[in-house]
Design a protein around this nucleic acid. Structure first.
Lengths: 97, 97
DNA sequence: ACCATAGGCAAGTGGCTGCTTGCATGCAAG
DNA sequence: CTTGCATGCAAGCAGCCACTTGCCTATGGT
């Protein structure tokens, strides 16, 4: 699935998903359970594992999170590339074209 | 009202509001009726005047749109400053701190 | 083989919000 | 002062989505 600009902004609209990006921005290659722990401990995000998993799915569909499987573990990492291109339409505005 | 980061991303979540920013990015100082016309003609946004007005309110609360009153006209302009600071937490990440 | 761990799938529900409808306000031209 | 235009306010309804609950698959250790 190719990520659209709309998917990026929809993904960023939820506070829980922004907190996930914050945690992943601190350290890459985290599993679902690691994320659940750190979200509850450091970001006051008290959701079930399934809720976090669904949020990760949205972020992955938007291309903001990339994953790598190894056995029964799935490691998540942040990727800001889609965010850069999503906001460039307004931030890279030329003053004198 | 001081705009929060959450307000910025909530504002950007709606396609209609992103279209409004696109129109304002083209030309500043547009009135509500001008915006309605250009949104319908060039961006396939077919909403009532009140809907557009509410969207403008959300954008204004987020600090993404600034307004200037003159008589019975109200001119709207884009301001990308809150957007820059909202995305900087992920985009301005230092590789070697 | 068995059990515990890591994660996935799916349906149901409550609450929020986006849009419309109807009316009100304010300014300006005649 | 009346008429018309640009905008503002508020309530109500319908649709969506965030979260939970319950069950399932698979991998790895003992």
């Amino acid at each position: 699935m190719v990520p659209e600009v709309a998917d990026v902004f929809d993904a960023l609209a939820a506070p829980a998903r922004r907190a996930i990006l914050d945690v992943l921005s601190d350290r890459d290659e985290q599993t679902l359970f690691e994320l659940c722990g750190r979200l509850a401990a450091e970001h006051d995000v008290d959701l079930t594992r399934q809720a976090i998993s669904q949020h990760l799915g949205v972020l992955e569909d938007a291309g903001l999170v990339s994953t790598r499987r190894d056995g029964r573990y799935k490691f998540h990492s942040i990727d800001v590339t889609p965010l850069r291109s999503a906001v460039s339409r307004w931030l890279d505005k030329e003053e004198n074209p």
